[in-house]
Amino acid sequence: MSCKNMIEVRNLSKSFKGRKVIDDISLSVDEGDVYGFLGSNGSGKTTTIRMLLNLIYPNKGTIKLNEYDISRDFSKAIKRVGAIVEIPKFHSYLSGRKNLLLMANLIDDIEKHKVDEVLELVGLADRAEDKVKTYSLGMRQRLGIANALLCNPRLVILDEPTNGLDPQGMKEIRDLICRLSSENNITFFISTHLLHEVEQMCNKVAILNHGKIIAQGKVEDLVNIDYELVEIYTPLIDKAISEIENLDFVRNIKKSTKSIFVQIEKDHSIDLNRALINNNIDIKYLIPHNQSLEEYFIKLINGSEENDQTNNE
């Protein structure tokens, strides 16, 4: 299978009233990717997605979807693309099914049972006849995903699709995305502020901070998985530090008020535990920290903020 470019963004910038909100970002999403677009609140995720969908216009840069330039061939570019921008909005005075039927009217040669099929897929079939104004946020998200799937998409763009869902709902949506990606070979572009979501679903990621992409690449390359972080609770903090600081698998030790953070090479937590016990150090808790991308992310953001400050000086 040749790797087709589903999204190609080059040197995109956007300002609102003179304030630069997106600053020269470039990214490319290949067919089959589940691409995470990670950034904190206000970093510019929704703004970027609006530009991808031609809802707002960039000040600079080009966007291609499905290899069509959206400023010239938008109707071709969007044909097999499904999308949600922010919280999915529908006509609140119509039922969920009626809303989808109206959208289905706008799709050429759609199969008859498509609406029921997507409602079934997102688990909304039993509430489909109710008016959308009676839907919970989670149900609106599902209806949004159902709508995005209506056109047999090759590419689906989702803006924080698990926003507002309970943990069970989040898991269902993530599983659905993974299933659609592997079974139907749909490419996904998903914005989120949740790191573990990227780790669970995505193979590639771009990290957005203050409108700039500060890192991008394969998730497995970005996440350094050859070490892990363990937090030790013990009454004998100083003694513990002096005993473990010379162990060869310990990379880094940080002392906090009640505990010690120890960075160790992968699969050495048993050795760490044994070393502490053997030296008669009582351990209250030994807590593994799932850090990886999170730590990487924080390090990057702190780094880029320091850079910003030095630039300003």
Partner: peptide, 14 residues
Amino acid sequence: ADGSLKLPLLRKVS
């Protein structure tokens, strides 16, 4: 105001 105006614009509607 309620955001549903964009729904058709995300299909092939100019």
